[in-house]
Nucleic acid binder design. Structure first.
Length: 882
RNA sequence: GCCCCUAUGGCGGAACUGGUAGACGCGUCCGACUCAAAAUCGGAUUCCGCAAGGAGUGCUGGUUCGAUUCCGGCUAGGGGCACCA
């Protein structure tokens, strides 16, 4: 007789050791079975794992264990995204070294992850801050450089004044640094760039083929890449208006990019960005304009500034000639709402059909002539004053375009202007534009991968020869002042030029940490390779990642960069792969109620006692003092609001299986899960119930499993049918990432088996039924094994197995059991249920109709009226229409 | 401003491609066991109604024998992008 209570702590330790001893999760490199690569986004070693990690890795582990049972050669690795600012901040605050802080955190978090019982191949563990990793990243940089995918140029950058470093566009959120939250400033610096824009079109077009990605993520990337089709149009400047500028180069014309060439006859003005060369040229002769430009710069690009800023402009005095009318002049303004970074930094303004242009002319009184008339509106009376019209319609007030649709007019304008030649070039050409910018990777920080470049006064920019890699970070650095410790290190940056041997200077910028995470999934396929970043044959075998799982917050940054890296590595001959992640799942967050005490201070859940009040509202008090606590909104777990729960505490109290089970029950994986104490206790009870059920089944089955009988009796058939139906459903739901429905199905099976076993009063039980219970018990345990692996091993052993369930093949569904001889029809009258009838499968329509019309409920509802029509849906429903 | 998603009992959520709305869990109530409690087990639990029955998937209109599911129009909540020409 077994213990009635499942001892979580003992069992979890025992089975974790058993898995490790048998090396169950180590992925050999010479397996012939079909491969399956499942990966969860690797963590930043911040100190301790949080519930978000638990959820992420619980899901990934379900997939890994399920695929392993289904006979796949599964790769399921783990590593550390280990470079980054927090390590430097910690170094500053605690007088430690970023490396020591990082590796200590890794040790802590590794132990925590191991306590979760994840089926990871720890022999492949990597940390991006290890020279054995970043050495290869430096090689990749040099490969990319040789392939023309790296650029070094002066550019306006987003400068984070708190972190004292540059940020990529993707890392600026609402005008603030994504990490520090500081308002970002604009600075001009020389930066290293990865030329992600070389792949704008490919990165966009390939999204259509990522059919196992969430539509939401594809859409976000599509918008981020921001493709638009338009026309580049050259406007000549009327020489008579040049004034003091006469004779200067490059000011005789103004090129603009437009997606609405159809509205050319609605043009009222031209405008250029304050940074536009034309603005600069004009400002040299006009101090007032120079002052205006200076003002524009000061306002900056923060969200608040943009929202409150009025449309302002400064008339340069220049006049542009309308491309279709040599006598038509357009004033050229410098305007604060034109961005130098997009298009050509210059526009023609059509106020009637662009809100910004309309706001602008309403300040300067330039008027608005509508040139697109909405359907059903009289062109003679159609005017635009406060709200620009950007909808569909027919061209008006536009000479030869009148009567055309917008598309026809765009085509006509493009066709005509392409045919006009000015100074050997056509006046216009069609052009595709993207919002996507090249990826600036230079960071003025210490704790990152050094960029392997040497600056020599005579040779210029010289790549570090591959034989000299890695360029390692110096250990003896100080963090007692802001700025880059590498830059102020006494000796590190002084080196001999590899080309001429003269004195030279190392590049002191390090790479953006997003570079580290853009190829780690490739490195996992061959992590010990010292000769090269990857072995193409091995990488090509394992990649693409079959299932990638992580948070939606990486929808753009990390996923877009990784897609770029895959293409860049392909160009360098390192990979033969289109896309890195064939399947992507973005999980929801873990959220928790927030609590505040009487003073408004945040209170942690562990300090709060919830008091159930029969019907009234829920109340909470401080556990220590009984003082009331206000229950606030349920939000993402965060340290600042103190609404976190430590996974360690949960695992110590309830076990890893409980935490995993709770994460998978109830909430659909893509939605937020609300963490509650009651929910955890529910999961714990479920675990104990499953254990008791297994013991009950084992008692009925007995020590020896009977052989399969020639014929199963009715009850045995019913038990087997329940088990196989649940199994079929669970397979389907796991593959569709519907773990909450899996959990529900497991409960259903457990409830049914429990009732069935409970009904057995005493021995002896017939062999066929014992056999059926044994089989059903096995299926039940194997179904929850991916989710509660420790409990499953304990149950598997209790059921008399000598093997590990982690190494057992997934049971095969016996489809014959799922087909029953009778089906239940729902009988409806006028679409309302009035009864049901059990009838032999395949009965003909007449028979079904007769049976339905004979049901009491149907007769009553028909109220003596004749049936006008009877609709029969095979095996489902019969509807009588009266 | 533009784009997208979501809305089902007290709560989290089920409902295959239009076919029994509310599976499963939490909570609550009743009962059993117990001196008592915890644990466990059994039952009830969308709303109105004693019942028969009726209403019901954010609101509203439509298609259909039949709509949580499809289409149109709203409302609310959430998210992404954002002077992108």
């Amino acid at each position: 007789m077994r213990s009635e209570r499942y001892n979580v702590r003992e069992s979890e330790a025992k089975w974790q050791k058993a898995w490790a001893d048998a090396q169950v999760f180590k992925t050999p490199s010479d397996d012939r079975r079909p491969k399956y690569y499942v990966l969860e986004m690797f963590p930043y070693p911040s100190g301790r794992i949080h519930m978000g990690h638990v959820r992420n890795y619980a899901m990934g582990d379900v997939v890994a264990r399920y695929r392993r049972a289904r006979g796949y050669d599964v790769l399921h690795p783990m590593g550390w995204d280990a470079f980054g600012m927090p390590a430097e901040n910690a170094a500053m605050q605690n007088d430690t070294h970023p490396a020591r802080w990082t590796y200590a955190n890794i040790d802590t978090m590794r132990a925590q992850l191991q306590s979760m019982g994840l089926s990871l191949d720890w022999s492949r563990e990597i940390a991006t801050c290890d020279p054995s990793y970043y050495k290869h990243q430096q090689r990749l940089f040099l490969d990319f450089l040789r392939a023309g995918l790296v650029a070094r140029r002066k550019s306006k950058v987003n400068w984070d004044p708190v972190d004292q470093t540059v940020l990529a566009n993707e890392q600026v959120i609402d005008g603030r640094g994504w990490r520090s939250g500081a308002v970002v400033e604009q600075r001009e610096l020389i930066q290293w760039f990865f030329k992600i824009t070389d792949y704008s079109d490919d990165l966009l077009g390939s999204l259509d083929r990522l059919d196992r990605w969430p539509e939401k993520v594809r859409l976000m990337q599509r918008n981020w890449i921001g493709r638009s089709e338009g026309l580049m149009v050259r406007f000549l400047i009327d020489p008579a208006t040049l004034g003091a500028l006469a004779g200067e180069a490059g000011i005789d014309e103004l090129e603009v990019y437009t997606t609405r060439p159809d509205t050319l006859f609605g043009a009222k003005f031209m405008a250029v960005a304050p940074d536009h060369p034309l603005a600069a040229a004009a400002a040299r002769h006009d101090p007032a304009l120079a002052t205006f430009i200076e003002e524009c710069r000061r306002v900056g690009t923060s969200v608040a500034a943009i929202e409150t800023a009025e449309k302002k402009g400064f008339d340069t005095g220049l006049r542009a000639v309308h491309p279709f009318d040599p006598g038509w002049r357009l004033p050229v303004y410098v305007a604060n709402f034109i961005l130098m970074e997009y298009g050509t930094g210059a526009i023609f303004g059509c106020p009637a059909h662009d809100q910004r242009d309309l706001d602008f002319v309403n300040v300067y009184g330039l008027g608005a002539t509508p040139v697109v008339c909405p359907p059903g509106v009289d062109p003679a009376t159609f005017t635009v004053d406060e709200v620009a019209y950007d909808g569909d319609g027919i061209l008006i007030n536009s000479r030869f375009l009148d009567g055309m649709t917008i598309d026809q007019a765009k085509e006509e304008v493009a066709r005509r202007l392409e045919a006009v030649t000015i100074g050997n070039r056509p006046q216009a050409k069609r052009q595709v534009n993207y919002k996507l910018r090249d990826w600036g990777i230079s960071r003025q920080r210490y704790w990152g991968c050094p960029i392997p470049i040497i600056h020599c006064e005579s040779c210029g920019v010289v790549p570090v020869p591959k034989r000299d890699l890695p360029v390692t970070l110096p250990d003896d650095v100080t963090f007692d002042q802001p700025g880059n410790p590498l830059d102020r290190h006494p000796t590190w940056k002084h080196v001999a030029c590899p080309r001429c041997g003269g004195s030279a200077r190392r590049e002191t910028d390090t790479m953006d940490t997003f570079v580290d995470s853009s190829w780690y999934f490739v490195r996992f396929t061959d992590p010990d390779n010292d000769a090269a970043p990857v072995e193409p044959a091995i990488a090509n075998h394992w990649l693409a990642v079959d299932q990638y799982i992580g948070g939606i917050e990486h929808a753009i940054l990390h996923l877009l960069y990784s897609r770029f890296f895959t293409r860049a590595m392909r160009k360098c001959g390192l990979l033969d792969l289109d896309e890195p992640f064939a399947g992507l799942f973005t999980q929801g967050m873990v959220v928790h109620e927030t609590y505040r005490d009487a003073l408004g201070q945040w209170v942690a859940p562990s300090e709060v006692r919830l008091e159930a009040d029969a019907a009234g509202p829920r109340r909470a008090v401080l556990a220590a003092t009984g003082e009331p606590v206000e229950i606030g909104p349920t939000e993402k777990m965060s340290k600042s609001k103190r609404n976190t729960v430590d996974p360690d505490d949960i695992i110590a109290t309830y076990g890893a299986d409980t935490a995993r089970w709770f994460m998978l029950s109830d909430s659909p994986p893509e939605r937020d899960v609300i963490w509650t104490e009651a929910g955890v206790q529910g999961a714990y009870k479920a675990m104990q119930r499953l254990w008791r059920l297994t013991c009950d089944i084992e008692r009925v089955v007995g020590p020896e499993r009977p052989a399969a009988p020639a014929v199963f009796g009715a009850e045995a058939r019913r038990v087997r049918r329940m088990a196989h139906a649940a199994l079929a459903r669970i397979e389907d739901e796991i593959e569709r990432f519907r773990f909450n429905v899996c959990v529900a199905t497991i409960y259903e099976l457990a409830n049914a088996l429990s009732a069935s076993v409970g009904a057995i009063e005493s021995a002896p039980v017939a062999d066929d039924l014992r056999r059926a219970f044994g089989e059903a018990g096995d299926i039940l345990v194997q179904c929850f094994a991916p989710m509660m692996p420790h409990l499953a091993e304990e149950c598997w052993e209790a059921l008399g197995h000598k093997t590990l369930v982690a190494q057992s093949p997934w049971p095969a569904v016996d489809r014959n059991l799922l087909v029953s001889t009778h089906v239940i029809y729902v009988a409806q009258v006028n679409g309302k249920k009035r009864g049901e009838l059990s009838i032999e499968r395949g009965a003909d329509a007449k028979e079904i109709e007769k049976a339905a019309l004979g049901l009491d409920g149907v007769v009553r509802a028909m109220d003596n009226k004749p049936a006008r029509k009877v609709i029969i849906v095979p095996n489902r429903i019969v509807n009588v229409v009266v």
